[in-house]
Write a protein that binds this DNA or RNA. Structure first.
Lengths: 156, 156
DNA sequence: GAATTACGTCAATAGTGCTGACATATTCTG
DNA sequence: CAGAATATGTCAGCACTATTGACGTAATTC
């Protein structure tokens, strides 16, 4: 048992390249996330705040329920960070006009400013990674990322 | 202040596509990770266990210090999950031969079996995402992921 | 022999996710 | 109109994973 522990048992050769991709994806995302982490530290915010603010900025006026769907977390988890973002003036809640049960979410000016600051190093990283890519190659990469999501994998 | 909250303040137009990529990367990684999460639940393990086992399987015989470098966490964080993986028979520690201070890490047979099970849905997802990609396009994607890591961004 | 290295461990804390339970408006429906 | 459904908020407790700081031990190096 321990005698053969050193033997590597390769997966079928066709899987090898996917293991490489798994590893690459891990490193890419880890380094990508770390860019913003350094900035968040100073503000007493975490990654959850970042994600919430990012999507509120992407889709100003979205409902709490929509945001929950996008993030894939529970309302209790969202509540904690959302409350902090509201209390600190980065996010604004507005009662829905047609449906007054809804609380539509908007970034404030500070919120937009913050999310831009957080996005900058990440944008730079992507820009650098795409520096030598042709438009066609950029499309290939975008398409790959899209196909990696559940939304795209469903319509296979 | 609240009057212009609805106004979206776009970043410079050249940054728009990078925001799209940030969003895509979030969804891709989130769904990608979730594949294994469902399996881990049943075992009482978390993502940290997954990552540790993954890299021990990728590089059998690596030192604890190397693993810490790869994962980018502290030894105290690693200790907890590593101990569980050792206690449950998925990982084996072997004292280094040249340097007897080292504890070289190896996956056991069960460990290799488990990491294959965890990697399968992720491999399938990647395979599906690459289904219509030519070899050249595959290379483009691999190259992009590589360039997204700190290691590659440094040698710019 | 003393410093350094590789690793382990105890304790406290933070961030972020979860479930369950319950409350409050508001809207929809029979 | 009364009751069901919906959108949201909140309290309480727990799990997992990360952190820092401090200290210990064995092995190696100088």
């Amino acid at each position: 048992m321990s005698s053969n522990a050193i033997t590597t048992t390769p997966l079928s050769s066709s899987d090898i390249s996917e293991l490489d991709h798994i590893e690459l994806l891990f490193f890419a995302y880890r380094d990508f996330i770390a860019d913003a982490d350094r900035i968040l530290e100073h503000l007493g915010f975490g990654r959850a705040h970042h994600r919430v603010l990012f999507f509120i900025n992407r889709k100003p006026g979205l409902m709490v329920a929509e945001l929950l769907d996008i993030l894939g977390i529970t309302k209790q988890s969202l509540a904690r960070v959302l409350k902090q973002l509201i209390d600190t003036g980065y996010v604004l809640q507005v009662t829905g006009e047609q449906d007054r049960r809804q609380r539509l979410l908007f970034p404030t000016n500070s919120g937009r400013e913050l999310i831009m600051t957080l996005s900058l190093p990440q944008s730079r990283r992507i820009k650098t990674a795409l520096r030598n890519a042709s438009p066609a190659q950029s499309t290939t990469i975008t398409s790959f990322l899209q196909h990696m999501t559940n939304a795209s994998q469903l319509e296979k």
